[in-house]
Design a protein around this nucleic acid. Sequence first.
DNA 1: TTACAATATATAAGATACTTAAATATACTG
DNA 2: CAGTATATTTAAGTATCTTATATATTGTAA
Lengths: 114, 114
Amino acid sequence: MISTDLIKGSLKTIVLKLLEENGRMYGYEITRKVEELTEGKIKLTYGALYPVLHKLESEEVLVTESENFNNRIRIYYSLTPKGHSVVVEKLKEMKEFIESLEKIVNPQPGLRYA
Amino acid sequence: MISTDLIKGSLKTIVLKLLEENGRMYGYEITRKVEELTEGKIKLTYGALYPVLHKLESEEVLVTESENFNNRIRIYYSLTPKGHSVVVEKLKEMKEFIESLEKIVNPQPGLRYA
DNA sequence: TTACAATATATAAGATACTTAAATATACTG
DNA sequence: CAGTATATTTAAGTATCTTATATATTGTAA
């Protein structure tokens, strides 16, 4: 499991990317999906996830639809038009961030096959 | 410039990696180096950097040597033996983190050349 | 049948890490 | 002589996350 310090700050982008990829998802499903994709290395806590979802909704980046499934409430989140453009920005930023980290962690990548 | 939210949590690892790479560095030099390596995309603020350096010193991960250069104090930081093993751990974690992010941001990387 | 695990969301209290801003001081450049 | 670069420090505030707890249903194993 990866130190939670590292994950801080990436949560919003992760959530938005998953919603773009999967159309609509509910909170619990998002935590499952992240665990699945990262082979258990990243686990989102509900105390972090739900407040982020609520905040993104209040910012009109996400909209919700409540549904009943087996007597359990499921609150599906999906991107608004504004949300779609936010994802584009966030992913661009994430990509630059990863590239920057790699330049620090692995300087002179061009020499790997030299 | 990358949103500071993303960088949060990576600061410690970045500092430790640079010190491993360069032997010893002073605070100001670290901010310059990060800017240089990331082409200005990551800028460390002094308010974040110096407290981290002090903390790492108190944890015996770093040691300091104060020197005088042109009437300016320079406090050089370098890794302790403990620091070297901390870097190894932190870099492993960082690598897993980057890989995990890529699995989310860019699912099915194996298909890129398929 | 009872207890535990999984599903599903919510939120309060506390910790921590970072931003912003200001302070201090010297050297160099136009 | 004003502004930029060098160099470190630290206080106050904010944001974000962790931890813990609450609630409720369904499925499973003993």
